[in-house]
Design a protein around this nucleic acid. Structure first.
Length: 596
DNA sequence: ACTGATGCGTC
DNA sequence: GTCGGAC
DNA sequence: GTCCGACGACGCATCAGT
């Protein structure tokens, strides 16, 4: 009896013709990708690539791209970065969409479901380094790309752009956490420190190269000789990557891109109110505490989009019904969707999330939620009507069409104000009626896709303030590495010497953060993986937009949109506010501003 | 079957 | 949603 | 003036782990 040698990979390739066929055959015979990786000493990511039918097209090394990234990181000026990008886009050995995506640091529009947690696991798996040490490096450098480049061993670069690019694109197909970890760690094991830095950054959608997307746009516009404004507009309509990759078709083709219902448009946004920026007469409307919704209707078709373009049509059927009642053949309407009780009163924002967050729900569950949280809309703009694009029309004229299309009960309430006195009168009335505030709009302004403009200004009230004390300081990330950049605040027990947490605050100026950080080090009394615990003695006055009930903090309450107003060096921890005051403020907030 | 970790999208 | 800060 | 990164709370989805 002769011993049969197990077939080598070489044998199998000979038998099946190609490595791709071998992998397919082995998977069909019941082997897992892990088995195959183990048996033939093949990197896990390659097996997953072959399973997805990967066919290498170009042999360009990924290290040529990381060199471009490094140069971009070093260049200081916008112009310099733009020229370097232009040089990159001139390369003919890579396709334009690959180059655009590499430049934008966004390899796919799908969700990778990769965050810092999975990167940390993958780094441990790839290097055998203990999680504690990886985390410590992360605290020091504030970013996993740099950490990866420090932990990965130098080697000859051999990854190709194709491999890296496709390996990232197939990640959405890896459902299990351990699959994603194995995939990424095998990729990192086969990369150089420089490659690892940028692979991690690509996975986290953040290249940290210090240029903006408009720099990428103008580099492409320059290369293909098309106006940057046109390219921007096309990108606003069909999407950034799609728009930029159309540039070679030239100005004539780009000009043909038209807005059509069914295709999401980036909504216009508002700035904070500044009295000097208002031009009268101004349109002033209630600001409803809801979620932005863009309604597209053409014939009997309706599509709803959230602020970032997520489709919501299937979970908001009552809004679809409302849209069916619009008096138009086709239209795109901008509105706020809000939660209302059975009596028509406004419900707090938290309730709305139960309706707007889910992506899809079983019919029964959806019905139940529809009963519990009713919805209505408040429309305030119209972008398109019966084949005509209204964007460049002044608001005054767009509103005329809006009133014809949308029934009165679904329109945002407002008035035209001649001066600041009238504005403030309407604003105060809005607060009395329980609204979030008002929006002030320039009646002569066009609708500017995707831009935050001073032609729309929001006014929201200052709420009460709470004096509280820092009990914990959390490590900053990215550009705030090495500092404590967010602070856990607490209030007193009314009787005993106890503290109850109420949430975290951040957003301090760099200088303040720096001096605070050293102060905190001196009163440190403990630590965990997120930051340090400190002796409660730094008192701050904090304001907020709303108090919410929560299980997250020991007081039972949390502040929505918290802000530090000032530090109270005149106050000791004995003199801060207590939980009773917080409870009173919570109960008072809807009395003083009736939710109606 | 439940809880926790992780990621994502709303404000 | 907020803010500060780079560009 | 504009954009963007670093932050806040919340609820949901999904998988990991018991």
């Amino acid at each position: 009896m002769t011993l049969v040698r197990p077939p080598t990979l070489r044998d199998l390739i000979k038998a099946y013709g190609s490595i791709e066929e071998v992998v397919k055959h082995l998977i069909n015979s019941g082997f897992t990708p892990e088995d195959i990786s183990w048996k033939f000493k093949l990197p896990y990511y390659l097996i997953r690539l072959y399973m997805e039918g990967f066919k290498p097209r170009s042999r360009v090394l990924f290290s040529t791209v990381t060199k471009v990234y490094d140069r971009l990181a070093l260049l200081r000026s916008r112009r310099g970065k733009e020229t370097e990008l232009l040089k990159f886009f001139k390369r003919e050995d890579l396709s334009l969409d690959v180059k655009v995506r590499l430049a934008l640091g966004r390899i796919t529009d799908e969700n990778l479901k990769i965050g810092e947690g999975i990167i940390e696991k993958a780094l441990c798996a790839a290097t055998g380094v203990a999680p504690k040490r990886v985390r410590d490096l992360f605290i020091d450098y504030g970013e996993y790309g740099e950490v990866a480049s420090m932990l990965i061993r130098p080697k000859e670069p051999k990854l190709t752009v194709d491999e890296v690019y496709e390996a990232i694109r197939i990640i959405p197909k890896l459902e299990r956490v351990y699959e994603r970890v194995l995939h990424i760690s095998s990729l990192l094991q086969n990369s150089t420190p420089d490659e690892a830095r940028y692979i991690v950054r690509l996975l986290l959608n953040d290249l940290k190269l210090g240029y903006r997307q408009e720099t990428v746009t103008s580099a492409i516009a320059r290369l293909y000789g098309v106006p940057a404004e046109l390219l921007e507009r096309v990108s606003a309509i069909i999407g950034l990557v799609e728009g930029l990759t159309m540039a070679p078709k030239g100005e004539a083709e780009l000009s043909k891109i038209r807005i059509r219902p069914g295709q999401f448009l980036k909504p216009q946004l508002a700035h904070i109110y500044d009295p000097d920026k208002v031009s009268y007469p101004a349109r002033v409307e209630y600001k409803y505490d809801g979620s932005r919704l863009q309604i597209h209707r053409w014939g009997s078709q309706v599509r709803l989009f959230s602020r970032r373009g997520i489709e919501k049509s299937s979970t908001l059927p009552e809004v679809v019904d409302i849209a069916m009642g619009f008096k138009a053949q086709s239209c795109i309407v901008d509105c706020e969707v809000i939660a209302v009780g059975e009596d028509g009163t406004f419900l707090p924002f938290q309730y709305l999330l139960e309706r707007t967050v889910p992506r899809e729900l079983p019919t029964e569950e959806l019905r139940e939620r529809m009963r519990k949280v009713r919805l209505t809309i408040k429309a305030f703009d119209i972008l398109y009507l019966n084949g005509v694009v209204l964007l460049d029309m002044p608001l005054r004229e767009r509103r005329r069409f809006l009133l014809e299309v949308v029934p009165a009960e679904y329109l945002a309430e407002g008035v035209d104000c001649e001066d600041e006195v009238a504005l403030m009168r309407f604003y105060n009335e809005a607060l009395k009626r329980g609204l979030e505030g008002v929006i002030v709009k320039d009646l002569n302004s066009p609708y500017e896709l995707g831009r935050r403009t001073y032609t729309w200004l929001k006014i929201k009230p200052e709420r009460d303030t709470v004096d509280c004390v820092i009990v914990k300081a959390l490590y900053g990330k990215g550009k705030r590495a090495g500092l404590y950049s967010s602070f856990l605040m607490a209030v007193r027990d009314p009787k005993e010497r106890k503290l109850y947490t109420i949430g975290k605050v951040s957003n301090l100026p760099d200088e303040v953060m720096a001096s605070l950080s050293s102060k905190l080090e001196r009163i440190k009394i403990g630590e965990d993986k997120e930051g340090i615990y400190v002796k409660p003695m730094i008192v701050a006055e904090v304001t907020y937009q709303e108090i919410q009930e929560t299980d997250e903090y020991t007081s039972g309450y949390a502040l929505r949109v918290p802000k530090i107003i000032r530090f109270r060096e005149d106050k000791t921890v004995e003199e801060i506010d207590d939980v009773d005051k917080l409870r009173r403020l919570y109960e008072l907030q809807y009395e003083r501003y009736p939710v109606k």
